[in-house]
Each structure stands twice: as C-alpha cells, then as structure tokens.
Design a protein around this nucleic acid. Structure first.
Length: 423
RNA sequence: GGUGAGGUGGAUGAGUGGCUGAAAUCAACGGUUUGCUAAACCGUCGUACGUCCUUAAAGAUGUACCGAGGGUUCGAAUCCCUCCCUCACCGCCA
C-alpha cells in the first residue's frame, strides 16, 4: 500500500509513475485525496465533540462526589445532546475511513526509476546472460519424456491422488528434490540468512499483508472451514513474521530464508506452458526475504541478485537475468529482476526466480517499522527472491545434462544427492 | 472437542467504574561519576490519526487504542455478550 503522505505531497508524480505500469485508473489518486480531506475534517469535528463529552463527564463525576445531583443531571443531558450529534459523525467517519482504505489498496506500487519502459514480456530487458547452452544430440528429449523413462516423476498417479498439476516425485526424483532444497538452504544460511520453516497455511491478515489479498485472491487455495489460505510462496508467512513490529535500527538487515511447498491455482494457464514440470499447482521453493533500511534497499537488491546468480552458476545452468518492464511487473513490486534458465530440449527460457524490491509497499500494509537514529519511526523496505523454485530447475538439469548413461548432475549437488548420475 | 484459568507498554507485573495512557521493577537509550569495567546516581523511555505553532526540526494540544468486535453507563483496562489466542487438565491422535 502506498503511503498517504507520498500521494498527498506529489499526486501528479504518483500518476506519472503509475502510467509506467499502465495503470490507467489515475482518478483513484484524486478520489483518495478527496477522501483523505473529508476524513480529516470529520475527525476534527469528532475530536472536538468527543473532547467536550469527556470533559463534561469528568465534571459530572466531580458534582456527584459533592452531592450536587441536580447539576449532575443537567450535565448528563448536555452529554446526551452532544452524543446524538456525535453519532452521525462517527458513522460517516467510519465509512470514509473504510472507503479510503479500499481505494488505497487498489493502487499498485510505484515502479522505481530503473524500471524499463514497456508493456509486455517482450519489452523486458536482458541485463546479462551466463552459463553455456549445451549442444544436445538429435535424440535429446524434453524432461517430460525423461522423467517417464527414468521413472522419477509420476504425473498420472499425482492426478489420481489429487488432480492434474500435483506431481508425485519418486525414487531419485524425490531424492533430487530433497538434495536441491538442502543445498539451497545451506547456500542461503552460509550467506547469513536465518532459516525458517513456516506454516504452509496463513490467515487472512497475513495474505493481505504481503498483497496476495485482495489482488490475487483467485490464485490461492482457500480453506473456508477455517478461513485459511494455502501459501503460494513462503514469502507470505516469512514476511509476516515481523508484521506490526517496530525494529531497532541495529536489527537491520533482517535476512530470512525458508523452504516451503507452494500452492497455486494457476487459473487460466494452458498449452505448452503447463507441460510437464513447467507449471504445476504444487511445487517446492526456497525463498530469501530481507527487511532493510530504506537507504539500502537497492544495494541489497543487487546483492540478492548476485546471490541467486551464484547459485545458478554453481548449478552450471545457462541463465539470463531480465529487468521487468513496467507493464510486466507485479502489482506490489517497485523493481523486479527475473532469472530464467535455458531449457535446452524445449529450446525455451523458464523462469526460476524473481527478485523484487517492494520498498515500503508491503511494510506499509504490515506496519513493519524501525526507529532511526533520531528516534523517528519509519517503514523498513522489504525484498524477496526465489533461491530457487525447484521444478523448472529440475526440468533444465534433466534436459541439459542428458546423455547415453543418464543425467549427469553438477558437482555442487554430488554431495547432497549422494551421487553424480541419475540413470 | 470438553473443562478451568488467563490475555495490560520491549519484558515482568499492579490496576474491579471517574484522580490510569496506565504504578513498580527490569531491560534499553542519554548523561554524571570512574584509569577501564562494574556499581551508584540523574534523565529519557507506547502507537496512530488530527489541530495549533514553526521554513523545518522541536514544542503545545485533542482524540483513539490495555487480544478483536459489539453492548451497558454521564463516564470502561475495570461490568456484560460474541469471537480469537495462550496456558493447564481431560478426550482424541501423527
């Protein structure tokens, strides 16, 4: 959620930035300012009336103590009159506050100045590429054929147990998942991230805090009996750890990492996007999250990108880093870099990580603040990134490293997997 | 799921209708003292939204908030109702 003072101070600039995201309902900005104005007026009115009620009530107490009952009674009537004028004000104030909140939530985060212009994924800018694309032999096949041949992921049985898009990992496939999770977590904790294993369902307040609600409600699995949501990423529970907290400046940066399965309904997906492991309803992911001083967030963003890049280098996968254009960024992000790995048999790039700076957008909703050296309370900045999402990493490892003897794993995984070959 | 006890500021914890936005202690922060550390002493030490004042900072002032929401009352942390959570015991169970 954008900070009201920011909108107040520079509504036109806000509108300009929103245009970069192709957010056209700029009338919202004016509506918000209008509501804010009304709110202030009503609050002043309420406060002055309520102050009178409070002081008169005290007088009544004093009169009663002195036994002056008649005066007390007449004061009581005064209060009653005040309260009847107060009632409509209170109601109106409540309404306006709710409206203001509702409208405020509809505004996406403002893109940073670094965000490239553009409307579609084609406008994203390749920042850099790394690794080497393998030259695959003619008989090379996509991962959905490989997993069948090797019998390491069983989609049919997953569909029988649950439904399509719920893969059942088996044997070395299950083991590879475990190895990757373990490796990623070790890599992150070695870089100073504290490991968490969070709840996989969250309540409404948490889903709202990171911006899944109300924007992406349909993307989450919902458990109506308890009003819980299955997490679409561990970002949700992990960032919410510090909801409504005021940190000390010396606590910053807070660096957290967590593994979790991720649940996504992926309503509306179709075609080659969903083939095999390319897009599934349940997948595993290790996430990194940081809460940082607002002055540092862009430096930290770079640091996180380098961190994820190192991981991909260690996995010996060809990758590229994209700066997402205004039209392709998420609602809540101020700047996002996507990481894609090259899936050699499908001959396409697959997104495996998205590293974003949210500035104060999430933390304003969650009220995650810190006291600066002057003792002033301000919002921290939040960032997160995948490190990494497993299924597509697995798809690429399988496709890119296939050979006559089987799948050769990168050195970094040998220890974790307990071997160097899937055959 | 049942029964009982609770939920107060960073922590402990007092507060059963007005003098309580909240005692006290601890922690934290600033200072004095000290060769250094410790101790001692002094001071500061909730959040949000407004208003006034100011270039701003600071300051003054109002309102709300003692798990959440509602109610009673002139007046609620305090009484009542609903919900949530925590703890203990029982039941069930990985």
């Amino acid at each position: 959620m954008l900070q009201l003072p920011v909108i107040r101070q520079n509504p036109n600039w806000v509108k300009e930035r929103l245009a970069v995201k192709f957010f056209t309902e700029t009338g919202l900005v004016d509506t918000i300012l209008l509501l804010d104005d009304q709110r202030k007026k009503l609050q002043l009115e309420f406060d002055t009336n309520q102050a009178k009620v409070n002081s008169t009530s005290k007088e009544i107490g004093a009169l009663m103590a002195k036994g002056q009952r008649e005066e007390a009674e007449s004061k009581k009537q005064e209060v009653a009159a005040l309260k009847s004028t107060l009632q409509p004000i209170t109601e109106k104030l409540g309404e306006i506050e709710k409206q203001l909140q509702d409208e405020l939530v509809k505004l996406p985060n403002l893109p940073s100045e670094k965000v490239p212009e553009g409307r579609t994924p084609a406008d994203n800018i390749v920042v850099r590429e790394g690794g080497v694309k393998p030259q695959l032999p003619k008989e090379a096949v996509p991962h959905w054929d490989l997993i069948k041949k090797l019998d390491i992921v069983d989609f049919e049985t997953g569909a029988k147990i649950t439904g399509s898009g719920f893969p059942l990992y088996k044997g070395k496939g299950a083991r590879l998942q475990r190895a990757l999770i373990q490796y990623f977590l070790d890599f992150n904790t070695a870089a100073g991230y504290t490991e968490y294993l969070p709840p996989f369902m969250v309540n409404e307040a948490s889903a709202y805090g990171t911006g899944q609600l109300p924007d992406k409600e349909g993307q989450m699995y919902y458990m109506p009996a308890d009003n819980f949501y299955m997490i679409p990423t561990s970002e949700v529970p992990v960032t919410n750890i510090y909801r409504d907290e005021i940190l000390k400046e010396t606590d910053l940066p807070v660096k957290m990492t967590a593994y979790s399965p991720c649940f996504r309904r992926e309503a509306g997906s179709f075609g080659k996007d969903v083939r095999g492991l390319n897009r599934v309803h349940q997948f595993d992911k290790v996430e990194i999250v940081q809460l940082v001083h607002p002055d540092n967030s862009y430096a930290v963003h770079e640091e996180m990108i380098n961190h994820v890049e190192k991981l991909l280098n260690n996995l010996e996968l060809p990758y590229r880093i994209l700066a997402l254009c205004g039209g392709d960024m998420s609602f809540t992000s101020a700047l996002t870099y996507d990481f894609e790995v090259y899936s050699a048999a499908q001959e396409r790039w697959l997104e495996v990580s998205s590293v974003s700076n949210f500035e104060a957008y999430q933390t304003n909703r969650m009220k995650i603040r810190f006291k600066d050296e002057k003792g002033k309370t301000q919002l921290v900045h939040s960032l997160n990134g995948s490190s990494l999402a497993l299924p597509r990493i697995m798809a690429c490892l399988l496709e890119n490293n296939q050979g006559p003897e089987g799948i050769k794993l990168p050195v970094a995984l040998h220890h974790y997997f307990g071997g160097d070959l899937i055959s």
